[in-house]
Structures are given as C-alpha cells and as structure tokens.
Design a protein around this nucleic acid. Sequence first.
DNA 1: TAAATAGTTGACGTTAACGTTAATGTTAAA
DNA 2: TTTAACATTAACGTTAACGTCAACTATTTA
Lengths: 148, 148
Amino acid sequence: MYLIDDVTKMTGLTKRALRYYEEIGLILPPQRTKGNARIYSEEEVKELKKVAEAKEVLGFSLQELQQFMSLKRMIEERSEQQGLSAKEITKIENLLENQIKMIEFKVVKMQAFKTELKEMRESAMEIHEKTKTKGEMKEWKDSIQITD
Amino acid sequence: MYLIDDVTKMTGLTKRALRYYEEIGLILPPQRTKGNARIYSEEEVKELKKVAEAKEVLGFSLQELQQFMSLKRMIEERSEQQGLSAKEITKIENLLENQIKMIEFKVVKMQAFKTELKEMRESAMEIHEKTKTKGEMKEWKDSIQITD
DNA sequence: TAAATAGTTGACGTTAACGTTAATGTTAAA
DNA sequence: TTTAACATTAACGTTAACGTCAACTATTTA
C-alpha cells in the first residue's frame, strides 16, 4: 500500500494528475486512511504506470484511455453470475478488434516514419563525407601556430 | 498549385490549422497569388500530409515536429557551398539517431499494448463461450409465443 | 508541545492547438 | 454589376490536462 507521494515516484505522474485522473473517472477512487489520505494498492499502481505509458509513449488522450479502461473493467467484472449479454460481449469483441487494428496501423506508420529518419541520416552522412576534407583542413589550420 | 480549401481536403487539416502551422513556423510561408491568397505546391501538400499523420497517428506535439522539421530543412539546405560544419553534422546525426531509437522504443511499447488488447479479447471470447448456452436459451424463449 | 512534513479540498491560472466570429478583400458566374 | 463563393487578418473564445496557490488537517520528528 502506497501513499500518493510514493505513487508519483513510481509512476512519474504528479499528485495533481493522480487526483485529476480520479476526478474524471479514469481510475477508480482508491481507499483512504482513517485520516482521509489516499492509499493505492500494488494493482492500482501497475494500472497507473500503464496509463502513464499509454499517454506519454503512445500519445493517447485521457478520453481514449477512458474508453479502454471501461472496456477493461467490463471484462474484469465478469463475476460469473451477473454476466453481460451475448450481444454486449460481441460488441466488446468488435471494439477490441478495432483497437487492435488501430495499433497495427500506427505501428506501420511508425515504421514508415523510421524509414524516413534513416534516409535523413544517410543524407547527413553523405554530406559529412563530402565536408570531411574541408574539415580536416580546418583542423590542421587550427593546429598550427601563426607567429608573425 | 492548390488554394487553401483544396489543401484542407487533401490533408484533413482545417484552414485555421494550416494558417496556425505557418504562424508558429512549423511550415514555411507558401507563395501568394496576386490577390494575396496562399498557394501551396505539391511538395508542401506532401509535407503537410506527413505532419498531419505524425500528429494524429504518432501523437507528436507541434513542438516536437518543429524540432524535426528544422532538422529536415538543415539537411535539405546543403546547397553544397554554404554547407554546415562537420561538428554540426555530427550533432544532427546524433539527434537523428536518438529519434530513431525513440521510434523503436515506441513500437515495442505499442506491440506490448497490442498483446494486452489481444488478451482482453481472449477473455471476452471465453465469457462468450460460457454465456452461449444461456444466450441460446434466451433466443429460444424469445422465439416462442406464450398464449395463455 | 512545537515544528516540520505530509496529506486534503477548492478555486483560479496556464498552455497548446486550434474554433469561431467579424470585418474586409478578390474572383468567377449570372 | 451585383451576387456568391472564395480568400484575408485580427481578435476573442474554448477545451484538455494539468499547475499553482491558499487554507486547512493529520502525522511524524525534535
């Protein structure tokens, strides 16, 4: 069990962000101490780490993440008896399928971008080669002393 | 050569966004007609498409993109004679190297996320299997007429 | 017991990335 | 030549995702 300051260190999120995520319903309200301080479980910290990563690295908005989190909770709350209707589950499966396609699309685009970066690097290296002679000339000039 | 309204259709960006990108120096100011209307070249439209994609798909901020664009321009402006110093080029190469690493990192994270989504889908499908009997029962119930 | 160190809830402030509206100019069609 | 459909700049408005500050409470440390 962790207090909010511990969680900031573990997740990289600020206290304000943690409270904000709770406020907008992105995460469920954690338990409280007798003195009304938030206490986060290991599980909750893990979830927050993933949220932070999905935001920073994958560039997801909090809105998008809310969609995803509510899906996640729906599946987790399959407390057997109070299950979802077959129709709802099919809907969830479709949503997940779309998300997966989206990710795959993004990965493809990322790789294309990477290719471009590599091409730019090649160009830079070519220029480097061309300038090399000039550069060596300068280094040589810098190395001698002009004592008039 | 395209007017601004054409460009919105080709890039998915709004007119406001196009002017804004120019305002903050993300793109170079395009030429103007005699009547002061912006005219974009094929090249510029291509660049704008990439910018839009990098923003939407890769989740880059305009600030990040500015860094990248200025790098790109530095390399493009290797007008041979007025070249960059070897030191500057090495710096550029390092920056590009870092960007490439970043992308690779993001791709790895994306794939991890995709795996999670797939696991969720599996869970959903399992629930689906379990509920199936119940569902068929319901369908059967729905299909009969209760005529008391 | 006093002080330092955490935690809490408002509530207003800030920044990025545009949206929207107004007032105005240009160009093509009727 | 007037109208319609474009374009322009300037300026204020908006939303997301927090930052920051104030006023207060709880807990731990000297």
